[in-house]
Amino acid sequence: MFLERVSWRASKRRPRYMSDLLASLAFRTAMIAFVFNIAIALYGVLSRPSLVKKFLCLVAFTDSINIFAVFIGFRYTPGAYPSPPILEAIPTSPAEVETLINTSVDPLPQAMILTAIVIGIACSIFLLTLILMYYRHYGTTNIHEAEEGEEPHAEAL
């Protein structure tokens, strides 16, 4: 089944060159790093008892997702370097816009992560405030220590 699927894509692909292979290798390395980064960050959020560490891991988690989007938008243009999606000067004919399309990377993921980054910052600000307040109440940012100090039935009331 896998072979079928791969060959379905392979029909669309052009012949490979050395630089193509290099780019693919670099891309794969980056993707592997990203995937493991997500897993490690998530592990940190779920298992660390310290709230500050949880917070840092959470930020790492959202940021690695954003970097994933950058990779989705990336493209490999043999012979030229991919360019940012910005026109150099005011185009005088439609052909100049077409040349940008041939080299530009995908602008939509960049715009999306711009939004996602702002949202991440907003959440971080609020989380930091909450952690500060937690510290003021319990005197520690370690959730295990804080829960030990409580009387057992406070929750149920």
Binding site: G73, P91, V97, L100, D106, L108
Partner: peptide
């Protein structure tokens, strides 16, 4: 594809229409 050579069509239409 692992290293795509083409833009996704939606991204290409954004690039095309942004200053046009």
């Amino acid at each position: 594809p692992i290293v795509p050579r083409e833009l996704r069509p939606l991204g290409a239409s954004f690039v095309q229409n942004s200053y046009n």
